[in-house]
Design a protein around this nucleic acid. Structure first.
Lengths: 343, 343
DNA sequence: TTGTACGCGTTATCAT
DNA sequence: ATGATAACGCGTACAA
């Protein structure tokens, strides 16, 4: 049961290692009979090629990596599935890597590029405030997908991005609430230190209020709690619970993520508030489960499927040299469901 | 911007490669000044060691892999987080790998062992019907965690397992429903081809009925739809919707997974059925979100945190040779919440 | 404390 | 069609 290597296989077969290598990698210049014999021995002896050695030697890996920030973001799982399909269809290998919130995704990418000879990278989520210098080290094409990318701060042609306009979509949602007669609209938002989607979505909220002549009030801007996991059910729940204790009148709560909104909904229910009769509740993202809870959650849906598809298409175009770097912005969709109503 | 290797660093520093290697790997026998100088050059030239080469050469990788079946099983994400902590605390590296439903997790593990020189493996989820022969090839210790493991079918001392007794816990839930006065209890279960947790949980349901003198009825056993993703929201929804159309009287629905139960809840709501007043709804797993929906979901909670901790502890004991293979079974907890009531 | 040289398992080049 | 053999980038005996 020792580690069997290509040399062992070669010895057993009575051929050279290169012949075995050819058999494994479907090279054309090998006698079909020899190949068959080699493959048989490989099966019998449970030979498995060592990927480290392969990656070390190979030049064309046909691998592309998807780096996902956070481990259980259900919004991303659908996108990943779709990307995986596309990548497989192109006969590429997908290297899926989760990176923790505290980790630096660019560092992770840098390592991975060396290790796996990647042809391209997709970043999913993350805050992406990185030095241009670091980004420049990534000498393979990469696409930032659904991150709150702010192309203006970097030179735009060093990378591509795919996203919705978080500020605008957020505005859309808040404007809808206002048009529905709401004026006292609380928002559950990111910490003020956030400069990514959290900030953008909050910006949209503020602008919508201002455009409608409603003052932006500090006491209605509810920050996520720093000691609880970001964007989590519990965070939404706790923030809402604390807010309700203050008894500040409001007719709607807008939460910048669906998952947190569901947490908020629980706090509302516990306080005896009926959604949407006593108070309206709206989220952002369009996660699947929002449709299945009761009342179903009004949200701003990001076109995940489309974005996933375009992300891979763009990346492959980049790899093939068929495209320049670009920054695609998709339209979100306001999904009015049961959790909000006009007053 | 070319790939800078350890040789380049050595050349630039005017030292040998081994000195650079020593600096990187915190070897004791190196002059602090030399080390500092080397590290400085490394930073300046953005040198990143090639992991493939390292893995190829190194013998002690101090890495353990967690293979997760399925990509977005929220029940596992908490466990993974906890395992990660434990593994980091022991100064090990965690290699997290998702394997698709259609992939063979043992094959994936086999490859990984070669590639990364793993010291141990944790399998999370999956059906795990594998030949002993294949399992035997895995010459590092491994633990099957929360899979519907049936140790009887393999020789028990080739691997360890951590799980709840799915049959018994399922019985617990159904018995609770029966004691609450329910007699017509539908179950949303796995396909009949399932031989893993799906079968075990269904077995528990049947036994609970029989023990209470209630006939097991085919028309109340609702199989997941094969054309929709297993254990998904949508699957629970569709199955329930179709069931309701048949107008078969029943006072409770027991779903063998929380996520599917939430889907089922939606179908109920759409049909105008109030949970729990018109019908009771119960799930299984104890996922976080079950607590946050309205009505909150009665479920059978698996002690995920405890199981995660014990899994890693056991694996490390195995690695250290401090323990023999064992099969730990944990007690689940019946969580009666708002979605069920006595009639 | 430091440097040289070998080998890890594989693929690619070049003979044959 | 096949086989030697030189890399790939690194860690580590061993020598200095």
């Amino acid at each position: 049961m020792e580690e069997v290597t290509i040399k062992d296989v070669a010895r057993i077969c009575g051929v050279g290692v290169s012949t075995v290598s050819r058999a494994i990698n479907n090279h054309p210049d090998i006698n079909p009979e020899t190949k068959e014999m080699v493959m048989k021995v490989i099966k019998e002896h449970n030979y498995i090629p060592n990927n480290s050695a392969r990656n070390l030697k190979r030049q064309d890996a046909r691998a592309i990596a998807v780096l996902v920030k956070g481990i259980d973001n259900s919004f991303f799982s659908e996108m990943i599935r779709l990307m995986e399909e596309e990548i497989k269809r192109k006969k590429y290998t997908l290297v899926l890597q989760h990176v923790e919130f505290s980790e630096d995704e660019v560092d992770a990418a840098l390592e991975l590029v060396k290790e796996k000879r990647l042809r391209g990278i997709i970043f999913l989520g993350g805050y992406f405030i990185h030095s241009e210098e670091k980004l420049a080290q990534l000498n393979v094409p990469f696409v930032l997908s659904t991150v709150g990318a702010q192309p203006s701060s970097y030179s735009k042609n060093t990378y591509s991005s795919i996203s919705v306009n978080d500020e605008k979509e957020s505005y859309k949602m808040v404007d809808y609430l206002i048009q529905s007669g709401h004026r006292d609209i609380a928002v559950i938002c990111a910490k003020t230190t956030d400069v990514s989607i959290g900030k953008l979505r909050l910006d949209g909220y503020k602008r919508a209020l201002r455009d409608n002549g409603i003052p932006v009030r500090e006491d209605l801007m509810l920050e996520m709690k720093p000691d609880i996991e970001d964007y989590s059910l519990e965070n939404g729940y706790m923030v809402t619970k604390e807010f309700l204790e203050k008894k500040i009148p409001c007719t709607a709560i807008y939460v910048i993520s669906d998952i947190m909104a569901i947490g908020a909904g629980k706090a509302l229910a516990e306080a005896g508030l009926k959604v949407p009769d006593d108070i309206s509740l709206a989220g952002f993202d369009g996660v699947k489960i929002g449709k299945y809870i009761t009342p179903s959650l009004t949200t701003l849906r990001q076109p995940a499927a489309l974005m996933a598809k375009e992300t891979t298409t763009l990346l492959f175009d980049l790899i093939a040299g068929r495209a320049e770097h670009q920054h695609m912005v998709f339209e979100g969709e306001l999904l009015v469901r049961e959790s909000t109503k006009a007053i």
